[in-house]
Nucleic acid binder design. Structure first.
Lengths: 117, 117
DNA sequence: GACTTGTGCTAGTTCAACTAGAACAATAGA
DNA sequence: TCTATTGTTCTAGTTGAACTAGCACAAGTC
């Protein structure tokens, strides 16, 4: 469970946090039922605000990746395993996109378009 | 060449415009050498600012999808064909993601992570 | 009962996105 | 060459999301 954050990036902090946790899920580092570190602890160690961490957690809850409750924390759900399956298909597509000279931006935008159509 | 925009969306207008044009490229609707409509015309018909349209055009230029010059407009480059090739792989991945219950947000974030790592 | 942890609220700051208007430069076409 | 077209560049103002901050509260754990 290694959380990193780049304050200089244009990507919002809470997005970076969520992405970092998703990555752990897709790599199998996160086991079902495991608890994420408390938001206050993460905030302290990364020197960001508690609300920012909680926003990331809430984003992951909306995605169904974690279960969130006061007193208990953020618990990883069964869906985390599904992220692992995508962990194989994604690198293939990304590699092909790079070969074709398609930027990250263009690639993600096309996917968003396809998904919501 | 159908350009649509949803002012209520949280996705920036210039992103939506660029995405709409990329989609045309991936569908083969845009031919190499073809000229996109003038920014002023698009702005007028969609009721957005000229700068917003031009920003979308400049984004596409950075991606190498169009060639941009005063007096001549935005001309589609050969790279547009490459976008068409991705048009096959993307739907497969998106469909799989939907089956696994992975949200658009999570999917695009994971791809961004993979691309920039 | 004491402690932990997410929830919810208010409030202030910063910055990207967007709009607006104008002058300018490069290109195309008559 | 002259004229209209079209992107480039600049300044400037508004709006809203992101982030920070502090506090009281509720739901769990031990």
């Amino acid at each position: 469970m290694l959380l990193r954050v780049d304050p200089a990036s244009t990507v919002p902090l809470f997005e970076q946090l969520a992405a970092s946790i998703r990555m752990d899920a897709s790599l199998g580092t996160l086991r079902v039922g495991e608890r994420l570190p408390a938001a206050r602890d993460v905030a302290a160690s990364l020197d960001v605000n508690v609300h920012t961490v909680l926003r990331a957690y809430q984003l992951l809850r909306e995605e169904g990746l974690v279960d969130l409750r006061p007193g208990r924390g953020a618990v990883v759900t069964e869906r985390a395993a599904n992220y692992g399956e995508l962990g194989e298909a994604i690198p293939r597509l990304v590699e092909r996109a790079k070969e074709l000279g398609v930027s990250v931006h263009a690639l993600t935008a096309m996917i968003r378009q396809e998904y919501t159509s």
